[in-house]
Design a protein around this nucleic acid. Structure first.
Length: 1052
RNA sequence: GGGUGAUUAGCUCAGUGGUAGAGCGCUUCGUUCACAUCGAAGAUGUCGGGAGUUCGAAUCUCUCAUCACCCA
């Protein structure tokens, strides 16, 4: 054997062997009738590459899978990737730009998605290859993709995922669990799509808070009074305005109200009054009501908050509660709207709404563009500047002294007094607009990096409130367990306060929503004047013009295809007069085409009165579904659902899900809800939530900080086994990992240690030797003992893995392999190989090494597989090795006690040698002053080992220790090391006294407990017994040391 | 502001009521035929502070302090 394991060389070769032999296949190594064990990989983003979190997550999965596979269970680790709508679309668009190809919009949807598939074929496998480097034993033959089977998918991308997604959407639509609605969503103005909360990063930035005066309407004034906590008046003035603070002045244009807290007495006199938004043409200033709501914080700013329901999440809630209209101000690119009627007209509508003279439907409100004509089309940040300027120039900004510290850096130092040479100023000249410099949390798109705009748009939503019940109940009653415990709280917290889930995205890459729209032509009041079933021109015009045809008011149906959906529009057509209700449903590209088509169709009819040519155009929703919607079906979709496959029957519900805490809500909760909603079953038995991998200083790894550790580089440097073992040994539940390369290096050394232990075995003829079998008799105590130690380790590892305590399992194996197997057993074996016990020791060591390799395999698969192959001719790869089941039956308690005695003696001799500075190479004689029968037997059986390990030359019986010797007290006996000339008496005395002091302290505690009657009364018997034994042992040692000390005094 | 968690050796952290451990680092010694990616020995703790429950608390309860993360 080489001196060290060559990871770089071996890993690729070994992985290839496994893969080519089908070792990862579902059911591989399963015993007949075995129980099943299945894990669904959390599908990585198809554009992604392996990062530390993946490495951690997949290491844990691989450990469980390999462990179960070796136990003969019918195992499936299902791999796959998700199609990552926005990320993938972005990557491909960038590629197109880089190669000077036509843009997405230039080439059109179909051509673009074809490009995406092309890209996926070329680059989509990156992360799979990376997972293989880690040693992941997924069944790659089953690799799944959340876009498989979608229209346009090329050969090789067949699959059922698209069918599953569409089927679930249609079913949920028909069950009333999915609806279309206008709600506030996170809008990304760069990608022009709604995005999820998860894709929004809230970052603290330097911002400003502007303070403006909203004049009260109709010349109303009030006494504004400020009081301190005790109600003493601090300040009073008559005001004709209400003061508002805002970080986003441009949204003032869409204000629907000003809100104050109901308890806020300062504004009580003007609640219910109207005030004026101080921006826009003077003659069309909008008036909005002052209302009360619990949301405003009276202690923050002026205590009054402007309410812009269409552009702020808090305001949205207030507006909903108060029935305040919400006016959208921006277009999809985040520019001020430039559509609809001129400002004067729009403002008029809004004013009559504010006065309670008119009501708007959502669609009608959305059609109202309240952006003043001069601001239309401007970017939102440019509009902000203009709004500020306009208000300030009108004198409606709240003013303050230029020295006001709230102005931050903009504040000037206190003006120089005229007497000191400063220019004389009037007070008015000193005042500047109050613009507070303030840290504000601003939402950014995690991919686009632009400021996210909360926007009121038409989207599809899952009515999560209706499907959350079973998902909550399953965790409450333990049907699905979430570990660690604390994450159940997170789960409950999310689900108990669940919001509707926006599932539509304005992208091209994804599952196109299977919904078709048609105009709602059933407008009230239409009559066929003649009742003759034939429409004349007048009637037709009226039919069309009576319809508002507003966006958002369409009728819609869902189905898997146009053919299926066409017949469902019968409900629209049925209500229409003859002959229109016989119109043929046709599919057109979009809404605009539909308007043209229907007009043309009706126009043609008025000419030839041929009812067979009448058509009713419908168009498909261009949007796609949120990637999480498809990921939500991962557990069943990967197993072939909606088809009733064998795999589905066998492996679903799955056993364990291992995932990060950050997607408990986004993914775990949604899988729970969707699996219950579609197949009425839990998706998994246990969810193991792991923590975050941080850098060694505890910082989150991020590209911008430059503290990212690349798992692949680490694997290159230290080998996959070391990286895996490091992550595993640090995987204490619920704690983040602080990863340092030093630590990885330590575990690389562990691998080397194991390698050299095997090398030692090889050199001593173990490799070719027949293995000991449990049940066969053993002579040598050390051999009996190591068998028992293996059995204890087996139990510890199984117990730890059963409880998902990965770090306990790893650390138990580390401690055993290094601390017991290498440090003691291999050393003990050396003299055994020179004696009669050699054959037995070869057999036992071979067995023990096999056990170590087997148990370490899930954690360090490569080096163990390599050693497995090297150390004997094997029928199977270690990946399919037989995980042991032996237990306490292999433990020989007498051998245990004897070895403990031997080790204790050796350690004590070594300790004395070390403390007394006996040269490490020197062999010294040992004197036996007293030894009981058990001790004599133990010595006799293990003499060679003791002499070698303690570097003792000989053992001689004597009655009294000679001058200058060090005393060693063990259970049942006293020994002495004659160190004449090497030590002085004072040093030995000091050593003994130190030991006695330590003993006395320990005994004090033990005695204290035992002399307490309440302890004897209430503590369990075994604890009392244990304490007594401990004390008597200490007492014996104390006696021996005291005797030695007394003798020392005599001699000196 | 709301929620969750943390505070144990110089560092990173285990410790699930029975009197404190590991790895790394540090000091000294050592190349004895598996391994210097190693071995032997050693030092280091008011378990964040305080109070309570208990025969007994690092562990359970309360409280204070500090820090971290998530949500607003």
């Amino acid at each position: 054997m080489e001196k060290t394991f060559n990871a770089e060389d071996a890993e690729a070769r070994i992985y290839k062997d496994w893969e080519e032999s089908g070792a990862f296949r579902a059911g591989a190594n399963a015993a007949p009738g075995a129980e099943t064990f299945s894990i669904m990989i959390p599908p990585p983003n198809v554009t992604g590459s392996l990062h530390m979190g993946h490495a951690f997550n997949n290491t844990l999965q691989d450990i469980l899978i390999r462990w179960h596979r070796m136990r003969g269970h019918d195992t499936l680790w299902q791999p796959g990737q998700d199609h990552a709508g926005i990320a993938t679309q972005m990557v491909v668009e960038r590629e197109l730009a880089r190669h000077q190809q036509p843009s997405r919009r230039e080439m059109g949807r179909e051509a673009f998605t074809a490009k995406v598939w092309e890209w996926k074929a070329q680059s989509g496998g990156t992360i799979i290859e990376q997972l293989k480097r880690l040693g992941a034993s997924c069944d790659w033959s089953r690799n799944a993709f959340t876009m498989s089977g979608a229209p346009g998918a090329p050969a090789g991308e067949e699959g059922n995922f698209h069918d599953a997604v569409i089927k679930v959407f249609v079913k949920m639509y028909e069950d009333g669990l999915i609806y279309r609605g206008k709600r506030l969503v996170n809008w990304d103005p760069h990608f022009e799509t709604a995005i999820s909360d998860l894709e929004v990063e809230n970052i603290e930035v330097d911002g400003h808070m502007w303070h403006f005066k909203y004049p009260l309407a109709d010349g109303v004034t009030y006494e504004y009074v400020e009081r301190d906590e005790d109600g003493n008046e601090l300040f009073r003035e008559t005001r004709d305005y209400i003061s508002i603070a805002t970080t986003r002045p441009e949204t003032m244009l869409g204000d629907g109200a000003v809100a104050v807290h109901p308890s806020d007495e300062r504004y009580a006199p003007i609640v219910g009054k109207l005030c004026e938004i101080p921006v826009g043409p003077k003659e069309h200033r909008r008036l909005i009501p002052i209302i009360t709501d619990e949301y405003p914080d009276p202690t923050f700013g002026s205590g009054a908050v402007k309410i812009t329901g269409a552009h702020d999440f808090n305001d949205y809630q207030v507006a909903k509660r108060g029935g305040i209209p919400m006016y959208r101000l921006m277009d999809t690119k985040g520019a001020m709207r430039d559509d609809g009627a001129p400002y004067a007209e729009a403002a008029g509508v809004a004013i009559s709404v504010a006065k309670g003279e008119a009501m708007l439907t959502e669609a009608e409100a959305d059609a109202v563009n309240l952006v003043p004509d001069d601001l239309r089309g401007l970017d939102r940040f440019e509009a902000r500047t203009r709004v500020i300027d306009q208000i300030t120039s009108e004198g409606l900004a709240v003013m303050t002294e230029a020295t006001d510290p709230r102005l931050g850096k903009a504040a000037v130092k206190a003006p120089v007094e005229p007497s000191e040479g400063g220019e004389m100023r009037t007070e008015d000249e000193n005042l500047v607009p109050l613009v507070e410099a303030k840290k504000i949390m601003q939402p950014f798109g995690d991919r686009s990096k632009v400021v996210i705009e909360p926007m009121l748009t038409d989207q599809w939503f899952v009515d999560t409130a209706k499907i959350v019940g079973p998902a909550l109940e399953a965790v409450r009653n333990g049907t699905t367990d979430i570990l660690p415990e604390q994450h159940k709280k997170v789960y409950f917290n999310w689900l108990e306060n669940i919001e509707p889930w926006c599932i539509s995205r304005q992208l091209w890459w994804g599952h196109q929503i299977p919904v078709w729209y048609g105009f709602d032509l059933t407008g009230a009041g239409f009559t066929d004047d003649e009742g003759d079933g034939a429409l004349d021109e007048v009637e037709l015009r009226r039919l069309l013009s009576d319809q508002s045809l507003l966006k958002g008011d369409e009728r819609h149906h869902a189905a898997a295809s146009f053919a299926e959906v066409a017949e469902r529009f019968g409900d629209v057509l049925a209500d229409l007069p003859t002959p229109v209700h016989h119109a043929r449903v046709v599919e057109v590209a979009d809404r605009a085409t539909a308007i043209d088509t229907i007009s043309e169709s009706l126009a043609a009819y008025t000419v030839d009165q041929d009812p067979t040519k009448l058509v009713y155009p419908v168009w498909r929703d261009p949007d796609v579904l949120d990637t999480w919607f498809s990921s939500g079906l991962w557990p069943i979709g990967t197993l072939g659902w909606p088809e009733e496959t064998e795999e589905l029957k066998k492996y679903f519900p799955t056993s364990v899900l291992i995932t990060g805490f950050d997607i408990i809500f986004f993914w775990v909760a949604r899988m729970m809800m969707m699996q219950y909603a579609t197949v009425g079953e839990r998706p998994f038995d246990t969810v193991y939530v792991h923590a975050l991998v941080r850098d060694e200083k505890g910082k989150k790894m991020s590209k911008s900080l430059g503290n990212v550790l690349d798992p692949l580089e680490l694997i290159d440097e230290f080998g996959a086994d070391a990286v895996r073992f490091t992550l595993t040994s640090m995987a204490a539940m619920g704690r983040d990992l602080k990863l340092s390369t030093q630590r990885i290096q330590g575990y690389r050394n562990f691998g080397t240690k194991l390698w050299n232990a095997a090398r030692f075995a090889e050199m001593n003829g173990v490799f070719g030797h027949a293995r000991w079998q449990p049940g066969q008799p053993i002579e040598a105590t050390a051999n009996k003992w190591i068998v028992g130690e293996i059995a204890k380790t087996r139990a510890a590892v199984d117990e730890a893995l059963t409880a998902f305590r990965f770090n306990d399992a790893a650390n138990a194996l580390y401690a055993f392999t290094w601390g017991t197997f290498c440090d003691w057993y291999l050393e003990f074996s050396k003299p055994l190989f020179d004696a009669d016990a050699a054959e037995e020791t070869r057999a036992v060591m071979g067995w023990a090494l096999d056990q170590v390799l087997i148990m370490l395999h899930p954690f360090m698969p490569f080096i163990t597989e390599e050693l497995w192959g090297a150390s004997a001719t094997r029928e199977k790869h270690l990946i399919h090795g037989d995980w042991p089941t032996y237990g306490a039956d292999l433990i020989d308690t007498e051998a245990d006690a004897e070895m403990a005695w031997v080790i204790d003696l050796i350690e004590k001799v070594r300790s004395v040698r070390g403390e007394m500075n006996v040269p490490a190479g020197a062999k010294v004689p040992l004197l036996k002053l007293a030894l009981d029968e058990t001790g004599e037997a133990a010595w006799a059986r293990n003499e060679a080992m003791i002499l070698r390990q303690a570097r003792i030359e000989s053992l001689t019986s004597t009655d009294a220790a000679p001058k200058g010797s060090a005393t060693i007290a063990v259970h049942g006996g006293t020994f002495a090391l004659p160190l004449e000339g090497l030590i002085d008496i004072a040093a030995e005395k000091a050593r003994l006294e130190k030991s006695l002091g330590k003993l006395a302290k320990e005994m004090g505690g033990l005695k204290g407990r035992l002399s307490n009657p309440k302890f004897l009364e209430s503590a369990p018997d075994d604890v009392v017994e244990e304490t007594k034994e401990l004390l008597s042992g200490k007492e014996e040692e104390e006696t021996r040391l005291k005797t030695a000390l007394a003798r020392l005094a005599e001699v000196s």
